[in-house]
Amino acid sequence: MTAPDPTDIEEYLAGVDGRRAEELRLLHSVIRTSAPGFAPVLVESGGAPLLGYGLLPYKSKSMKQPSEWPVVSLAPRKNYVSLYISAVIDGRYVPEIHADRLGKVSCGKSCIRFKRLTDLNLDAIGEILADLEKRWRAGEKLYGEH
């Protein structure tokens, strides 16, 4: 996959409706500031594009061939925003590890869902992403077979 033209990212963000667009722009800025080494990329997931960051080699147990997947990705939904942090540290997904620090959100294994950006602890997200980028630069494997 090649890096998207910056206008593609802008078009993606411009295609989001209302308050969600402003929230995604702010979160995009937090991600880019906290983990500048994770380059933005548009990826398809279930027929809907995601705005991803830090495309890395990935292979799950069910995959026959390795692929690539972003460490972090954003997806606007009808009633909330999903922030995916797909990295695994010590056998646990990062959102699970930090669930108590993330604010008034709903956490899955790799997914953080929130209705309003003010519900998400942006300082914690910034710290978590900066740590992930530091680990990545040090050569730590952020993905593994799950």
Rank of each mutant, 00 (worst) to 15 (best):
A3M: 07
P4G: 14
D5G: 04
T7M: 06
E10M: 05
E10G: 05
E10T: 02
E11H: 09
A14N: 14
A14F: 14
G15N: 04
D17L: 02
G18N: 09
R19Y: 12
E22L: 12
H28Q: 09
S29C: 13
S29E: 15
I31R: 09
T33R: 14
P36V: 03
G37F: 04
A39G: 11
V41L: 06
V41R: 08
L42F: 07
E44K: 04
S45Y: 12
G47D: 13
A48G: 04
L55P: 12
K59T: 02
K59M: 00
K59I: 00
K59L: 01
M63S: 05
M63D: 04
Q65Y: 15
P66C: 00
S67G: 08
E68W: 04
W69V: 03
W69R: 15
P70M: 15
V72E: 01
S73K: 03
L74I: 13
L74T: 08
R77D: 07
K78Q: 06
N79Y: 05
V81A: 12
S82C: 15
Y84K: 02
S86K: 08
V88K: 08
I89Q: 07
R92F: 15
Y93R: 09
Y93I: 09
E96H: 12
I97P: 14
H98Q: 09
D100W: 11
D100T: 05
L102H: 14
L102F: 12
G103R: 03
K104M: 08
S106W: 03
C107Y: 06
G108D: 14
I112V: 06
F114C: 02
L117P: 03
T118F: 03
D119Y: 01
L122H: 04
D123H: 05
A124E: 01
I125T: 03
G126V: 00
I128P: 10
I128F: 15
L129I: 07
L132N: 05
L132R: 06
K134G: 11
G139S: 07
Y143A: 06
E145R: 11
H146G: 14
